[in-house]
Design a protein around this nucleic acid. Structure first.
Lengths: 151, 151
DNA sequence: TTCATATAGATGCAATTGCATCGACAAGGA
DNA sequence: TCCTTGTCGATGCAATTGCATCTATATGAA
């Protein structure tokens, strides 16, 4: 079977997308490290749990939200728990599972990460594109999401 | 010192950028794996070396081009050499260094990876955005490059 | 019930990555 | 020449990640 060939435009856009996002993430991770803060993945989980509120979330619900493998979530939660940033509660309806909830220290850590993370976003994106351009970018990227969804 | 806060537009664009690029790369890596092919990083290096021609490249020249750390390049080249895809030549003017050149098997492997990689790009980008939209996307992403450069 | 199958989450082990450092050579000043 | 400092590339060791599998519980059919 013959495979499809990408258009030159698609190749250029792909290359930029991959390269730029890697650079930006790397710069942000460096900024966090320089401030003695944990990696972005910690923020992602703390953010999701903060949004989820007192009810918390089941680990399997985190998998798609933070784009991590099951074992990745399992181990990340173990670290967060060891640091007192989240707590695990048994769930009565399902003896296999647990509910994970953010703690006050977790919220505090989330805030501390955000001061650096948010500044990085402002510097790397907000300073370089106008609000209108950012909306256009987000819209185009939205069309690339999986599964294909309207935007 | 008070840190800058990102605009809502910047945050949305950032989130999409990071998430979408991770998804697309992951899907592409999966496609390669499913076809028994090596990771994208192998393609990147083979591609750069193919473009460089017979003169080859010094390892340190690869570092920025493929966005890998020095030790990453060192180890990746060792694997590529072990698989006969590249060869290392001593360089006369600098006794510390070496020149890395792609071999015929390397070119062949590059072609084989591209059939899958290219198809993935076509499917994930080319099928979802028009040529004009792809150009717009590439242009916006170009403005985010580091260091800030006109596009 | 009982048994087969499925799902939630954890984990042993191997492979990979990151960090720090090393050895070798280069470059330039004293 | 000698010595200091810088660059190129490799590597030991620790931390992280990926893969496969495990335990425990749930679910549903017979």
């Amino acid at each position: 079977m013959t495979k499809k060939s990408p258009s030159p435009e698609a190749v250029v856009a792909w290359a930029r997308l991959v390269r730029v996002s890697r650079q930006l993430v790397e710069r942000t991770e460096d900024a966090l490290k320089a401030n003695g803060l944990p990696p972005l993945a910690w923020y992602d989980v703390l953010h999701e749990l903060a949004e989820a509120g007192e009810g918390g979330l089941r680990p399997f619900e985190l998998i798609d939200r933070v784009l991590l493998a099951q074992y990745g979530v399992s181990r990340l939660l173990a670290r967060l728990e060891a640091d007192g940033l989240v707590e695990k509660l048994p769930v009565s309806e399902d003896g296999r599972g647990q509910t994970v909830r953010i703690t006050p220290s977790g919220r505090e850590m989330r805030r501390r990460i955000w001061t650096v993370y948010g500044a990085s976003i402002a510097e790397l994106m907000g300073d370089r594109l106008s609000a209108q351009e950012l909306r256009t970018l987000a819209s185009l990227l939205g069309r690339l999401r999986d599964p294909p969804a309207g935007d």
